[in-house]
């Protein structure tokens, strides 16, 4: 079986514990305004233009974003990284895009990686078929779970989908007892108003450190913006600046009350 992947990165250190390989799978049901991996949205190979520099000259090179890989090919890369992964107690993380958008391939890959002794993590938006989610839970050691907005209407506005399924699925994972890290993208003006922050805090407090191993506050950053023109997608974040380090510190203190370990960044 093959999966559509737009990037495989070695030495990722912010997608779960230790040194990891992160597999970015292509295709996502959401279209978040701030998405920094827009090449991960469409579930088919796309053509993109890369600029290579040679001295003062620029060369436009057409390349394909998204290639098909077998799970065996992913394992080959992991085997090359084994020594680093073992030394650091790292593993493999499936991210995206939405990895559960390709559930059969994801399941097969998780099974194979687990079979070779790798710690597995799935970085998901949660907007996935519950049946698919249930199928991978036994083969996943850690969920990196995005919570973008707790208000259903706002969630729909900013991401294109409602959040009910996402919250239900999260509860299912909580019930399974698997490790969960909540990732909250801090998008100034969109989800960092005090009412929403308080709502988020009380939601997280309900589950607390027993269920939530860590809360990652992911400050909005602009590195994705240049990709939009490359893919010819409209960018809706003009004028929004990343939160300052002082603001992030403030938010860390704000969420510390939940008793959950809070960290800025992955």
């Amino acid at each position: 079986m093959q999966g559509l992947i737009f990037s495989i990165k070695r030495y990722t250190v912010h997608d779960g514990p230790g040194i990891r390989v992160t597999v970015f799978m292509k295709g996502c049901p959401l279209s978040c305004w701030w998405c920094h991996n827009p090449e991960g949205i469409l579930q088919e190979p796309e053509s993109a233009t890369r600029i290579d520099r040679v001295g003062d000259r620029e060369f436009e090179v057409k390349e394909q974003a998204g290639k098909y890989y077998s799970s065996g090919q992913i394992l080959e890369i992991l085997e090359r990284e084994r020594i680093f992964i073992e030394e650091s107690a790292g593993g493999v993380t499936f991210s995206g895009g939405e990895p559960l958008f390709q559930p059969a391939f994801l399941l097969e890959s998780l099974r194979k990686c687990r079979g070779k002794g790798y710690h597995t993590a799935v970085d998901t938006s949660g907007y996935v078929d519950t049946k698919d989610l249930l199928s991978i839970i036994p083969h996943t050691d850690l969920f990196l779970y995005d919570l973008k907005h707790l208000d259903a209407g706002k969630h729909l506005l900013y991401t294109g989908v409602s959040n009910e399924l996402i919250i239900n699925n999260l509860k299912i994972i909580f019930d399974s007892g698997k490790d969960v890290m909540i990732r909250f993208p801090v998008i100034p003006g969109l989800n960092d108003d005090i009412e929403h922050l308080e709502k988020m805090r009380s939601f997280l407090s309900e589950y607390g450190p027993e269920k939530i191993r860590k809360l990652n506050l992911l400050p909005y950053h602009k590195t994705g913006s240049s990709k939009y023109s490359k893919f010819g997608i409209q960018y809706r974040m003009n004028g929004i600046e990343p939160p300052s380090p002082a603001r992030m510190k403030e938010l860390m203190d704000f969420f510390a009350e939940t008793g959950i370990q809070v960290k800025t960044g992955g």
Partner: peptide, 18 residues
């Protein structure tokens, strides 16, 4: 940036040395 990145760098160095 932080303790975790130090642990990963330590693992990177120790792997090279292994």
């Amino acid at each position: 940036s932080d303790e975790e990145s130090y642990s990963c760098l330590t693992a990177l160095i120790r792997s090279y040395f292994a």
